[in-house]
Computed example of a mutant assay.
Amino acid sequence: MMKNSMNENLLKAKQRVKDLKEFYKHVVAYVLVNLFLAFVWKFSFKIFGDFVISNQFNDDGFTHIPIWFIWGIFLLADAVKIFGITNRFTKDWEEKKIKEFMKE
Results as ranks from 00 to 15, higher is better:
K3C: 04
K3H: 07
M6K: 14
N7Y: 03
N9L: 15
L10D: 10
L10I: 14
L10N: 07
L10S: 09
L10W: 07
K12Y: 08
K12W: 07
K12S: 11
A13V: 10
Q15G: 14
R16A: 14
R16N: 13
V17G: 01
K18F: 11
L20M: 15
L20C: 13
K21V: 14
K21Q: 10
F23D: 09
Y24R: 09
K25W: 15
K25I: 14
H26F: 11
V28F: 13
A29T: 08
Y30M: 05
Y30W: 04
V31K: 08
V33A: 10
N34P: 02
F36V: 15
F36L: 15
L37G: 03
V40S: 12
V40G: 05
V40F: 12
W41I: 03
F43L: 13
F43H: 02
S44W: 08
F45M: 06
F45Y: 12
F45G: 07
K46F: 08
I47W: 05
I47F: 11
F48K: 11
D50P: 02
V52H: 01
V52K: 03
S54T: 00
S54F: 01
N55L: 00
Q56N: 10
Q56S: 11
N58K: 00
D59R: 02
D59I: 00
D60A: 12
D60F: 04
D60Y: 06
D60T: 05
T63E: 09
T63L: 09
H64N: 15
H64M: 02
H64G: 00
H64P: 00
I65D: 00
P66C: 07
I67K: 00
W68Q: 05
F69H: 04
F69N: 02
I70T: 09
W71A: 09
G72T: 03
I73P: 07
I73T: 03
F74A: 11
L76G: 07
L76I: 07
L76A: 11
D78W: 08
D78T: 08
V80H: 04
K81W: 09
I82D: 01
F83S: 04
T86G: 06
T86F: 07
N87D: 15
F89Q: 06
F89A: 09
F89M: 10
T90I: 08
K91P: 03
K91C: 04
D92S: 15
E94T: 12
E94Q: 14
E94W: 13
E94R: 14
E95I: 10
E95Q: 13
K96Y: 10
K96A: 13
K97L: 14
K99H: 05
F101E: 06
F101G: 01
M102A: 14
M102W: 01
K103S: 08
K103I: 05
E104F: 13
